[in-house]
Nucleic acid binder design. Sequence first.
DNA 1: TTTTTAGTTCAATCGCGATTAAACTAAATA
DNA 2: TATTTAGTTTAATCGCGATTGAACTAAAAA
Lengths: 152, 152
Amino acid sequence: MQDSERLSGQDQLIERFGTYFESIGFQPIAGRIIGLLSVSDREELSFDEIINRLKISKGSASVVLRKLVAECRVAVVENGRRHYYKLKQQNLFELLDEFERMCDSARHLLNATIDLKTDKESSNAKYFNEIINTIDRYKTITATMRQAVQTI
Amino acid sequence: MQDSERLSGQDQLIERFGTYFESIGFQPIAGRIIGLLSVSDREELSFDEIINRLKISKGSASVVLRKLVAECRVAVVENGRRHYYKLKQQNLFELLDEFERMCDSARHLLNATIDLKTDKESSNAKYFNEIINTIDRYKTITATMRQAVQTI
DNA sequence: TTTTTAGTTCAATCGCGATTAAACTAAATA
DNA sequence: TATTTAGTTTAATCGCGATTGAACTAAAAA
């Protein structure tokens, strides 16, 4: 594969990472930075390399990188005056935890909604109960999966 | 429970539904409408009831409701000149499908990223492979779950 | 000590989706 | 037929997060 080909391929992937992370609530620039750090062959990039490759201002890079570091998405290595950044690998179990917390809060909201219904047998009340049951079934299964993985 | 108590309880839940749906990409008003239709005791509400309870303009209600109907989140019943709206209950398997499509596209992006790496043994390449394996394990499990539920 | 460099800070602005207001349409009603 | 009513359309505006630019700080280099 030629260098130019690789570069343009990387640009496309950076864009895809970017739109994905945008869709889950990150700033556009944050998504591109995660993309660049994911895609790039050298996995530790300086502040300058980042702003030059992505063509963004020092200001936004500074703000967004600080946020990404605070959120443990990116790790920073200081080397003299220079800062180097690399992707911080997430603990996959923590990702699962996060998803389960989301399910829990949905479950909680649906329960509160049913509690407030005059008619607990109404169509929506039944539907919400069905969703709650599905969430509970799902949690049983992931608990099993978690155990299985942990005992390997 | 008193009526006033129930009403303010509903308002709070509407707000919680609203912020939840906002967080997954819906317009604020769309989230509140879904909340109102989820929480309200009468589960079929007229255009007027919606704009009065949520204190929103006819214009935004019209636009947002059309969108929600197009997305199959809300069903509309026309009765003479009046339109009545109710929550459209989703097929829970379709929700699962949607989640799996999301996993598939993530898997695809990670694969493309590894393909483009010069060093397939780099730290990030290994990390991405680990995520792919986790996704695959997850899919095996949900397939089993799906079969189990379908044969009930 | 002076100069250069790396990154930070923050006020200003940009961009854009969400929302409204008011004119408008079409159907029901009188 | 004239009027009322229910909802639609769309131009204008609002609000706000994202981004920039330029001044600024602090540390390294000269």
